[in-house]
């Protein structure tokens, strides 16, 4: 029995108690994590894109230390944002194509929790590797030690928010032609607050100012996204599935 089928079976046979909800979420997450190995490009492409985009800035603008130190936090954040945006396409598409998504919608477990599980799996596969790669790239843009730590922290808190909000867009554009451009157009305005606070925190850290306030605010964004975004994504999934 392939891991795919066992994951689907786990979802289908999860009992209807509240323990079943957690079991279902775990099943969904594990399934996504395991199936990512079958599509390694989904894992690698965002990472490569991240590195390449960051590389463009010293080449295209200026390799001077002063410039990179000032702009580095922002460059890494923008690159991370774009990489997550790029990876949103496969969040629902594989399940949509093989019919698993329709099964998920029909489950007794609340859809928004299953969507939350998928978003978290997406973050583990996309955002988390970016965060792990960040110290290396931060050194390449000459960021200082203190800034690097804060940058990693802001990305750690911020990238799950990007996955959660991005899931709304991915659900709304499921099955549409030119979904990629439409997705970017719809989601980037919603990403802007996270970007502003992420980079603002890094800049404050570079100047030596305290950052606990900003980090707490970013944490608030994360909590807000975790509680609200899955509802919107679930509603969007139902709409997209009823469409075609």
């Amino acid at each position: 029995m392939s891991s795919d089928e066992s994951g689907v079976k786990a979802i289908l046979h999860a009992p209807e108690s509240s323990a079943g909800v957690l079991a279902a979420m775990k099943a969904v997450m594990l399934r996504d994590l395991k199936s990512s190995f079958r599509q390694p490009q989904d894992l690698l492409n965002p990472l490569l894109f991240f590195v390449l985009v960051i590389m463009l800035f010293p080449l295209g603008v200026s390799p001077e230390v002063a410039f990179l130190q000032k702009a580095g936090g922002g460059i890494l954040w923008v690159a991370a944002l774009l990489s997550v945006l790029l990876s949103l396409d496969h969040l629902f598409r594989h399940d949509f194509d093989d019919g698993t998504l329709e099964q998920m919608v029909l489950q007794p477990q609340p859809l928004f929790l299953l969507v939350l599980a998928k978003s978290m799996a997406h973050w583990v596969l996309t955002g988390l590797p970016l965060v792990l790669l960040t110290p290396l790239l931060a050194v390449m843009v000459h960021l200082e030690g203190n800034s690097i730590g804060v940058l990693c922290l802001t990305l750690l808190i911020g990238t799950p928010v990007l996955s959660l909000i991005g899931a709304i867009g991915a659900a709304l554009t499921l099955g549409l032609r030119s979904a990629g451009v439409l997705l970017s157009l719809m989601i980037i305005p919603l990403y802007i607050p996270v970007l502003i606070f992420g980079t603002g925190t890094v800049m404050a850290a570079a100047e030596g100012a305290p950052v606990t306030g900003q980090l707490a605010l970013m944490g608030a964004f994360l909590v807000l996204a975790m509680t609200l975004a899955p509802f919107a994504s679930a509603a969007a999934l139902r709409i997209s599935l009823s469409n075609g």
Binding site: L172, L176, M186, S240
Partner: peptide, 20 residues
Amino acid sequence: IALGSAISDEKSSARAVAVL
């Protein structure tokens, strides 16, 4: 506007745009 014109089914388009 873009999402509304991308979905051809009237009801789905209405609800998707509403969510957005």
